[in-house]
Design a protein around this nucleic acid. Structure first.
Length: 195
DNA sequence: TTAATGATGGGCT
DNA sequence: GCCCATCATTAAA
């Protein structure tokens, strides 16, 4: 797998474009001991003027990573038990991000199974709280630079481009902005959280 | 098969 | 005190 040297240009675009362009990219967790990789198959966009977005009411202690440079991690705790992983987008100060909702397990699958205490490969990363558990992503990864090859958590673009259709749909688990089609997933991929 | 529910804690009013 | 960008378990059908 080759790193695209234009990775830094992946995130400084409109958030809806980034949400689509992240499909097919690889999320890589690497430490000295282990490497875990998943292919991004489902995303959701959260915009600054979007009532469902954490940034809607402006900067706060929790959401300040959303206002940082594009290409950073924004990780938060939801429902008291699960971490959600986002990539920051657009420009510094705007306050937008893309939630990663599902991965297709690619590498380190045995480690994912232990982390999740689950044997069913289709259940390992098919949800935002599941994939962070599978990869060991926590709020300690907040602000992590996803564009650096040295980071413990990063995004990589495969050198050969994969062909797939993108489905546009309503977001899941929100009570505001429910009609917006800000969720994207790879058509017919069996690892998305929900059709 | 789908639907309802409990777990659990931080953010915000 | 209420509201969550969720998930596993249990119950119902």
């Amino acid at each position: 797998m080759k790193i695209n040297n234009k990775i830094s240009n992946l995130f400084n675009k409109s958030t809806l474009d980034v949400a689509k362009n992240l499909l097919g990219a690889y999320l890589v967790r690497s430490t000295s001991k282990e490497k875990i990789i998943g292919k991004i198959v489902e995303t959701e966009a959260y915009l600054f003027d979007d009532a469902a977005s954490h940034s809607y009411k402006g900067l706060s202690e929790r959401n300040k990573a959303m206002f940082d440079n594009p290409g950073r991690a924004y990780v938060y705790l939801v429902y008291g038990m699960y971490e959600c992983f986002n990539c920051t987008t657009n420009k510094k100060g705007v306050g937008e991000a893309v939630l990663i909702r599902a991965l297709e397990p690619v590498f380190g699958i045995e480690k994912m199974k232990r982390n999740r205490r689950c044997d069913d490969i289709k259940n390992l990363c098919s949800g935002p709280g599941k994939l962070t558990s599978a990869l060991g992503i926590t709020r300690k990864d907040n602000f992590c630079d996803l564009t650096s090859a040295k980071s413990r958590l990063r995004i990589e673009i495969p050198s050969k481009k994969e062909k797939f259709s993108i489905v546009k749909a309503k977001r899941i688990g929100i009570t505001k902005g429910v009609s917006l089609l800000y969720r994207f997933y790879i058509k017919d991929n069996q690892f998305v959280s929900k059709k």
